[in-house]
Each structure stands twice: as structure tokens, then as C-alpha cells.
Amino acid sequence: MMNNTLKSLSKLSPGTSIRGKWHQKEYIVVKQLGFGANGIVYLVRDGTRPAALKISDNSSSITTEVNVLKSFTKVQGSALGPSLYDVDDWEQVGQRNSFYVMEYIKGPDLLSYIQGKGNEWLGVLMLQLLNDLEVLHRNGWVFGDLKPENLIVTGPPARVRCIDVGGTTLKGRAIKEFTEFYDRGYWGLGGRKADESYDLFAVAMVIINTAYPKRFNKTTGGLSQIMQMVKQKSELKLFEGVIQKALEGQYLSASEMRKDVLQTLQPSKRQRRSKQTQHKPNSQQTRVKKNAGKAKKKGSLLETVLLIASISIIYLFYIYSQIL
């Protein structure tokens, strides 16, 4: 529930000028983008460029979120969170509120993107997300409130970005913000202490969410209910093993989970050997039957090669060209 100060901050009308006390930069409110327990986010004009401004009466909350954004910028190649532009205070009559200005990330949310582009993009985007979570975790933070609404896909090339770091928590502390469906505590599968496996549980639930856009309610709870729902969706079969390991807390790092996701996306050597064996002529056959079957073998082998090539184009080329 909002306090009175936040309520007043949530009513800023388009055209309102917010000028920083210390840096004297001016931002013009365009519209409200969202609000939460710790602040209000507005789309603003920063000169000629659009930007997102988060304002709050809780200066410590703003400081924490700013530190998270700074931790992203310290590591080259990480683009999970928005770039930080400015940090300042806004003084009104007898009142001072803290704010920060960040990059305005525009695009469809993760679920909308997957529904529009196809489920084959899920693996690619999860690889990106896990790579950036690894960076975040190494810098001592856990994302906490990880959910599709906070994940925006920009591009081309397609890139998953986060628009809200309000739930990000230092490792070892209690999770500050969470959404029940993605929270392991809600499902009875762990506590709310900030660690790597908390985020990885949420990643698994995000994957499940793509097959259940409206989510589903907890009944019996626990691993059995979630995995029963997973087994009912054919589009989740590819990730079933990864999902179960993440729900059970078996992954010690995002890089471990990422490695497993990558392996599920690559055509296995075992599958290719199996296909080739199916089309290999029997040494017991006569020379006549062997020659007669050559054309059929070549056609089947060509189909196998084309299948592997198409999968490689979608996954491997994209992964190694755009991500690694």
C-alpha cells in the first residue's frame, strides 16, 4: 500500500518539470510507466531523448537500486539492466524526494515476444538471461523479483533486458520483493534467502510461464504439482530436465544451468549416429539390394543433414554470433 507521499508522487501530470537539486538537470514528465511499494516510474524527456525516471520518498531504496545498476555497468558486455544516467533529489515545498534516471528500454515483454515469434526463441533468450544473471551473482546481488513482466526483448538482434531492479537484493539477505508464482517459498521448495538458486528457480518458472501464459494456481504445491503441469505441455518437454534441476535447487550457478540449456538446444551426436545407423545398408544383404537402396539412403541422409543444418542456423549460429 502506498503512503501519502508516494500517492502524491504518483499523480504527476504530463508536462511536469523535475529539476535535480544538485546537478540541475531538467526532466519533463511524459507519462507514468509503473509504480510499486518503493517508488513511481515515469517516462520523461531528457533533452531530446526519452528516459525512465524513478522517484521515491525512500532514499535508501533509491541508493540500493542505483548500486545495482552501477554493478551492471562495471562489467563489459552485460546489458541485463538499463544504463544509469543521473541520480539526484527533487525539492518541492518543504519536501525532498530522491530519484534516478535510466535508459528507457522499449519493446514487447518476454511472453508477448515468444507468442509472436515462436517458442524456438525461448532457449536463445534464456541463454542470454542466464549469462547476465551470472554477472549479477558474481557482483554479489540476487535479482529476486524475476518475472516476464520485468523482461523486455529489444532488437534486432533480439536481446532480453530488465526494466525493474527494485527487488534486487544483496546475497545472504532476505528477498525484498517477490511474486508468488516465481517464488520458491510460495511453492514450499525453499526459503527466501537471497542466493543464486533463488533466481534460477524463478528462471524455471518463467520457462513454464511461456506455456501457461495465465499461470496456474497452487493446489498441493511442491515439486510434484509443478512437474505434473510441465509434463502436460509438449513445448516444455525439451526443457523438462533443466526445469526439474532448477526447481530442486541443484544448480549452484547460472553458468551451470546455462550449460544445460545450451546442450538441450544442440542436436546430440547420439541422435545423429542413430539416424545414420537407421539408413546404413545391412552387410548381409545382397549386392543387388544394396545398390537399389543407395538412392533411398542418400535421400534420407540429405533430410537428416538439412534438419541438422536448419537447427544449427536457428540456434548455434545465433548463439555463437550474438551471445558468446
Rank of each mutant, 00 (worst) to 15 (best):
L9Y: 07
S10G: 10
K11D: 15
R19N: 06
R19I: 14
G20L: 00
K25P: 01
Q32P: 10
G34C: 08
F35D: 12
I40F: 02
G47Q: 00
D57Q: 12
S60T: 11
S60L: 15
S61W: 03
N67G: 08
N67K: 08
V68G: 10
S71G: 06
S71W: 05
S71P: 05
F72S: 06
G77I: 08
A79H: 05
L84A: 02
Q95Y: 09
Q95N: 13
R96A: 06
N97I: 05
N97M: 07
I105Y: 13
L110A: 09
G123V: 03
L136R: 02
G144M: 03
L146N: 03
I152K: 06
R159T: 15
D164P: 13
R173H: 15
I175A: 09
K176C: 02
K176V: 03
E177P: 15
E177C: 13
F181S: 12
G185V: 12
G190H: 05
E196C: 14
Y198I: 07
F201P: 06
I207F: 13
N209H: 12
V230N: 02
Q232P: 12
E235Y: 04
E235H: 03
K245N: 12
L247I: 09
L247P: 13
L252N: 07
T264S: 03
T264K: 15
L265W: 03
Q266C: 10
R270C: 00
R273A: 01
Q276V: 03
P281K: 01
S283D: 00
Q284V: 10
Q284I: 03
Q284T: 08
T286E: 12
V288N: 11
K298E: 05
G299K: 02
V305A: 03
S312D: 08
I313M: 05
I314S: 05
Y315R: 09
Y315A: 08
F317M: 11
I319H: 00
L324S: 13
